[in-house]
């Protein structure tokens, strides 16, 4: 605005303090990567929600006359199948679009499961007597001592390979991080004077645990949840690739990779596009998570 300087002084003398959300957004916006990540993430979300509208074909419809057709810009490709078809003549683009649904579904369920259990256990460990605290934390150490994918594989082997079991396994693998994080935050907050003040005011233990202390521990948990989302997507893809996750013909990105492994030299597109989707989603979520951390962690905040 060029003419604003000539205008009289604005009348507002009291500027309302910025709301928490506004403050958060202004510091989140400074991180360009995070904003790009957020928009890519939102883009994928829209695609996932509108999959039936956006996809040109059903994900499992086979076109016997068009096996392994290359993408449209390559010789032999046509605009009928924009990103080509796989070995069974299914449209790759439609399968990728429906695959986004699975990825978000998986991410959401896994993160919700892991966060709820993890935070609950963490708060309990932070307030519990020493023996219970030790018990919980040593159990978590045991879970953490396994390579995460290996443990997930073992769990799936016990439970049987399916998408649901893969999600449960990954949630169990991710959950110790939440327990540790929550417990550490609870221990620092618990010793502060405002908690004692709430106790002097007559707050009962449960109220102090969940109303007084927990809201003050949320920032690192939110960040961890965002970053776990990408781990969940990646690990499910890995389990799918190993045949332990979603079973064909589910259009899940990892499973699609596994199915098309043998065509990697003949038809590059059947492997590249699902892999690219996984890469972009995970990258976007990680960038967003980093931005969240910078914006929510007061220690990194520039004021």
């Amino acid at each position: 605005m060029t003419d604003s300087a000539s205008q009289p002084v604005p009348q507002q003398t009291f500027k309302a303090p910025p709301s928490r959300l506004r403050e958060f957004w202004s510091s989140f916006r400074e991180n360009r990567g995070a904003v790009i990540g957020l928009f890519v993430f939102l883009g994928f979300l829209v695609v996932a929600l509108l999959a039936p509208v956006l996809a040109p074909y059903a994900p499992d419809a086979q076109y016997r006359d068009a096996l392994l057709v290359p993408p449209f810009w390559q010789e032999g490709g046509s605009t009928r199948f924009l990103l080509g078809t796989d070995a069974l003549g299914r449209d790759l683009l439609s399968r990728l679009i429906f695959g986004a649904r699975y990825s978000f579904f998986i991410g959401l369920i896994v993160v919700t499961l892991a966060t709820t259990c993890g935070v609950l256990l963490g708060v309990i460990a932070g307030f519990a007597p020493t023996w219970l605290d030790t018990l919980i934390m040593r159990l978590m150490d045991i879970v953490l001592s396994f390579p995460s994918l290996l443990l997930a594989l073992v769990l799936v082997a016990i439970l049987g390979p399916s998408l649901l079991n893969a999600m449960i396994a990954i949630a169990i693998v991710l959950q110790p991080h939440f327990v540790r994080l929550t417990r550490a935050a609870v221990l620092t907050e618990r010793s502060k004077d405002y908690v004692t003040a709430a106790r002097v005011a007559g707050g009962r233990k449960l109220r102090i645990m969940f109303r007084t202390v927990l809201p003050n521990c949320l920032a690192p948990i939110i960040v961890q949840a965002a970053l776990s989302f990408s781990t969940a997507v990646l690990d499910t893809a890995a389990l799918g690739f190993l045949g332990m996750g979603a079973q064909p013909p589910t259009p899940e990105w990892g499973t699609m990779l596994a199915e098309s492994r043998e065509f990697i030299l003949r038809a590059w597109w059947v492997v590249t596009f699902p892999g690219l989707c996984i890469l972009v989603t995970v990258l976007a979520i990680n960038l967003m998570g980093d931005g969240l951390r910078d914006a929510l962690d007061p220690k990194l905040k520039r004021s």
Binding site: Y194, G203, T212
Partner: peptide, 29 residues
């Protein structure tokens, strides 16, 4: 018996407005 603590930066819940902080003792008791 009520208490006022030494460190004013640690003795108020950062997630509660001043109003909520003041009303909490009444709400509980």
């Amino acid at each position: 018996v009520q208490i006022v603590f030494q460190d004013p930066y640690g003795s108020l819940n950062p997630r509660q407005t001043i109003g909520q902080t003041l009303m909490e003792p009444l709400l509980l008791n």
